[in-house]
Amino acid sequence: MEKNKKIFNVKDLCLYFQTKRGPVQAVDQVSFSLVCGRTIVFVGESGCGKTSLARAILRLLPRNVHTYSGKVFLNSINIMALKEEVFRKEIRWVKAAMVPQAAMNALNPVIKVEEQIAEPLLVHDLVQTKDEAHKRVVEACRLVGLPLDFLGRYPFELSGGMRQRAAIAMALAAKPDLVVLDEPTSALDLLTQANIMNVLKRIKKETGITFILITHDIGTSSELADDAAVMYAGQIVEKSDAAHFFTEPLHPYAEKLMASVPTLREDKELDFIPGQPPSLLNPPSGCRFADRCHKRFDKCVYEPPFLEVKKNHWVKCWLYE
């Protein structure tokens, strides 16, 4: 496979939800691209639209969708243009899988772990025989470090960490090109969290799967990130490679957010962002962070462009025009 091939490309993705008080712009004009085998991390506070972005990518939409538009290219195919039936058969789980939030609690309690991991394979006719399915399941379990003797058990007999591994194995069994991980470790204990992160890191190294990791935990996100993006009020405000992102964020929001992360190994001046994110019902017309920004100036009343300030370092802020 070509090393720098862009396998994933999102252009102007919008997802609005219909509510009684009007459309909520959960994902607004999001564009980004991803090079094969790299992991991108989306960080942001609750309600910034990061989970909606994941759902929009995999077309896992609730019923109250107001607007769903844009282009999503996976291996140069615009998967947004595909019919639902085709998408379900050929893309979801097969090419792009997702480990949803609290996936470990979403396992069916009355189905054995093995059957559960094999389920997507059988549904999509990726395997012909039971033996073949078993082989794929074993392979996936080895990848996530799930002991094989757990396969015959029911989910409730497993600990949280093991259930989470099973949920990840379920996403990996079909060998997708892209896996979206939505807060994969947030409900787990610290040590288990670290273990799961180790597992994901190893999978990344061994298989070259492309991950999209969605999390609010900036510290943990650095464990997996090759690229990173910050979302604020439904939009990406900054995107760069991890090295720049964690050390010298450019967007005032990213800067403040980074300053608000307490660190264990160094004593730094902590900061916080006063105020609250704007409502996504009627977001402000200019820069959505302007109200809370310590560097705002006249131009912020207009919507800032998403500029490539340095190579591969994009910022949505007038300061870097």
């Binding site: 180790n198 943990t220 650095s222 992102f245 964690f246 050390t247 264990l264």
Partner: peptide, 18 residues
């Protein structure tokens, strides 16, 4: 302590000993 991550791009290169 080992399991706690500070935001640091170097984290991605090492495994945690937990």
């Amino acid at each position: 302590l080992e399991a706690t991550s500070d935001p640091d791009p170097k984290n991605a290169e090492t495994f945690k000993k937990v």
